[in-house]
C-alpha cells in the first residue's frame, strides 16, 4: 500500500503545482497548457483508481478534443490580448463562493455520516467502482442536488453575458 500512497502524494503534489502555475503565468497560452497538464493528471488519477477506461476517455475526449477547441479559439485573439493577464481579485463576487460553500457543507455531511460498515475501507480508498457504488447507493439525492447547484453558475454566466449584450445594444 505504501507505493500507492507515495504515488497518490506525487500526483496530488503535481496537481497543486500546476494549479498554482495557472495563476502564476501571465500569458493565456501558458495558463492553458497548465490546465492541459491538469487534465492529463486527472487521467492519471483515474488510472490510480483502477478506472483505465475512464482514464483513456478522459484523455481522448477532454484533452484530445475539447481542449484543442479551446486552444483553437485562443489562437483567434491577437497576441497582445493574450499576454499580460492579471488576476483582479477585487472583481470576484462573494456569490461565487456560495456553490463552493454548499459543496464543502455536503462534504462535511458526508464525512459526518462516514462510510457504512458493509464497504471495505481499503477498497473504498483505492477503487473508483466501489466509490461509485457507494455514492450512487447512499448519496444519490445529494449527488443530484450537487449537480443542480454546479449548473447554476453556468446559467448565471449566460444571463450575465446576455445582460451585458443588451446594455451594449442600448
Amino acid at each position: 500500500m505504501i507505493e500507492r500512497a507515495i504515488s497518490l502524494l506525487i500526483i496530488s503534489s503535481l496537481f497543486f503545482f500546476f494549479l498554482l502555475l495557472t495563476y502564476y503565468f501571465r500569458h493565456f497560452i501558458y495558463q492553458f497548457l497548465s490546465i492541459l497538464v491538469l487534465m492529463v493528471l486527472q487521467g492519471v488519477l483515474f488510472l490510480y483508481l483502477n478506472a483505465e477506461f475512464l482514464a483513456a476517455v478522459q484523455i481522448i475526449v477532454y484533452v484530445g478534443a475539447i481542449l484543442i477547441m479551446f486552444l483553437f479559439s485562443l489562437f483567434l485573439f491577437p497576441e497582445e490580448e493574450l499576454k499580460g493577464i492579471k488576476t483582479d481579485v477585487s472583481r470576484i463576487s462573494y456569490k461565487t463562493f456560495i456553490p463552493i460553500g454548499l459543496l464543502v457543507l455536503l462534504l462535511v455531511i458526508s464525512l459526518y455520516r462516514a462510510v457504512p460498515e458493509n464497504y471495505s475501507k481499503q477498497e473504498f480508498l483505492s477503487d473508483i467502482k466501489v466509490i461509485g457504488n457507494f455514492l450512487f447507493n447512499e448519496y444519490w439525492f445529494l449527488i443530484y442536488l450537487l449537480a443542480f447547484i454546479l449548473s447554476l453558475p453556468m446559467v448565471a454566466l449566460y444571463i450575465f453575458f446576455r445582460r451585458e449584450d443588451a446594455s451594449r445594444n442600448n
Partner: peptide, 10 residues
C-alpha cells in the same frame, strides 16, 4: 486501441 487514440490526440 484506446491508448493509441489518446496518444494521437496528445
Amino acid at each position: 486501441v484506446l491508448l493509441i487514440l489518446a496518444f494521437a490526440g496528445l
